[in-house]
Amino acid sequence: MAVEDKKVPGAQGSHFWPNVFDPLRDFGHAVSNFFSPSADASNSKDTYEISMELPGVEEKDIDISIHDNVLTIMGEKKFEQEKKEKDYYFSERRYGSFQRSFRLPPGIQQNDIDAHFKNGVLTVKIPKMLEQEPERQKIDIRTE
């Protein structure tokens, strides 16, 4: 009898191992989603804007910083346990720390960045440096 016929774990043609690992198959993807809240980034004539969904996070638990043209948003969604006990059948809500970093293009006004938090959405506006129209300069013609 060939190894395949006995359904030995790890043998070619065996379906045992894939079924055992099915629950863990998307674990890495789930972890990356857990630590990466959804965000949108947009660009207008004079501003870059980043919006991030942070439902259940309080403003005091959010930290925004910029270093070397990298904007970092980090924070924590805290789990507040109630005094009475509950029997959960399942819980799909996620708690814990998160961090997202965004490399910004050169030419931003770092000191004028504005952040606003409302209804679980953080909006960060990063103004661009205004490009000044080069001044017209008259060049004299020399005569020899």
Rank of each mutant, 00 (worst) to 15 (best):
S97M: 09
E53M: 10
G28A: 12
N119Q: 15
H15D: 14
G13R: 09
H116C: 03
L71P: 01
G13D: 11
Y95E: 05
S97E: 09
K138T: 00
S97A: 09
Y48D: 01
P134N: 00
E53G: 05
Q110N: 13
V124S: 00
K125H: 04
I108L: 04
P134H: 00
K128P: 02
K118D: 15
G10L: 14
N19Y: 12
T47K: 15
D68V: 08
S44Y: 07
S44A: 12
F98R: 03
I139H: 06
V20E: 07
F117W: 05
Y48K: 03
G28P: 00
R103Q: 10
Y95C: 05
K7P: 00
F27Y: 09
M129A: 07
K118Y: 12
R136I: 01
L122K: 01
K84S: 06
W17F: 15
D61V: 05
A41H: 08
M129E: 13
S32Y: 07
S44P: 04
A11G: 12
V124Y: 01
F102C: 01
K128L: 12
I73D: 00
E131K: 08
V70H: 03
S51V: 01
V31N: 03
P105C: 04
K83H: 03
E92W: 08
G75L: 02
K60E: 10
Y48C: 03
I62Y: 02
K125V: 07
D5E: 15
Q132H: 12
Q12L: 13
D63G: 02
N111M: 12
A30T: 04
G10Q: 10
S44Q: 06
K86H: 13
V124F: 03
A30P: 00
N33W: 04
Q12C: 09
D46K: 05
S38P: 07
H116W: 05
I64H: 02
E49P: 00
P134L: 00
G107D: 08
G13L: 11
A11N: 08
N19P: 00
T72G: 01
K78Q: 12
A39I: 06
K7I: 07
P37Q: 02
Q99N: 06
V20L: 15
E49F: 01
K86Y: 14
A2Y: 11
K78A: 09
Q132I: 00
S97T: 05
E58W: 04
R93P: 00
R100G: 01
D87S: 09
K7L: 14
P9Y: 11
E58L: 14
E92F: 13
D112P: 00
M74G: 04
